[in-house]
Amino acid sequence: MMEIVCPAGTPASLRAAVKAGAHTVYCGFADETNARNFPGLNFDRQEMREGVAFAHDHGAKVLIAINTFPRAGAEALWYSAIADAERAGADAVIVADLGLLAHAARHHPGLRRHLSVQAAAANADVINFYGREFGVKRVVLPRVLSVPEIAAIKADTAVEIEVFVFGGLCVMAEGRCSLSSYATGKSPNMNGVCSPATHVEYHDDWGALSAKLGGYTIHRVGAGEPAPYPTLCKGCFTAGETTGHLFEDPVSLNAEALIPQLAKAGVTALKIEGRQRSRSYVAQVVRNFRAAVDAHAAGLPMPQGMLASLTEGQAATAGAYKKTWR
């Protein structure tokens, strides 16, 4: 059966996800070592130990994301996160940085290593390189590949494949995007944040609501229309004669319908994005995906459209998986 990997931004979410049927939960420490470094989110050391113990008691695993790029001159913070993850009993760490992987492989050889999506490993050769050099056992694929491309990768590697199936959608290769720091000074790679809320402003322009990020107006909706969060790559821009969502529409990813194809492609684990989401959201998504993989494992038809109401702005896409980009 395919493994469901669920986000947990707080200890309460972790418990909710485990109770809802998550095989695995991923979370991070409350500092800049993880790519969801939001106020009020994530785990201190004790909460992490308790969360891992709770999950293990319920037969679930915990992965700890240490997936930002250590700051020059301050790598000790990231090294201690790796050591504390091992001490807390984590089943694996999710790492993106080459130097940090080398450190973990050398100093914590018994700690299982997954390659974060932030490493944007998009072909079998580089995945095998990470496997060979650093003993990486699993790779989280960037959200820029189609299902046939994923199948082709799996055909050429023994490293396990994990793919995102639900939640936020990056259209840029992850870990290789500095749009956010260009506009706001804060980036996913360096600060663990993208298009941060601290830099968002909403303005009422003659009845229309404008959303600005870092002073750039990238959304405008009429009175009463839902205003999407101004994430840079999903903003509204003008190029040539065209004004619109030039990079991606304000949609989120929902690949639940592709579970059978992803299973056939050899995918080991399905990942749900959203450590910043509420525990009730997490529990609902987990229940539905667990039902879907259980149905698939039992040879039953896929339940359809369960999660439509949970997707951002009510619009969802299968992203690159359906090959429409190519």
């Binding site: 590949l145 995007c177 500095s178 040539g240 065209t242 990079f247 190519r326």
Partner: peptide, 20 residues
């Protein structure tokens, strides 16, 4: 400044075409 790279071609998307 090179700020981002994607699997999707935005020039093609702007013209209503796919990358291939």
């Amino acid at each position: 400044l090179p700020l981002a790279i994607s699997g999707r071609c935005y020039h093609a998307r702007l013209h209503g075409r796919t990358k291939d």
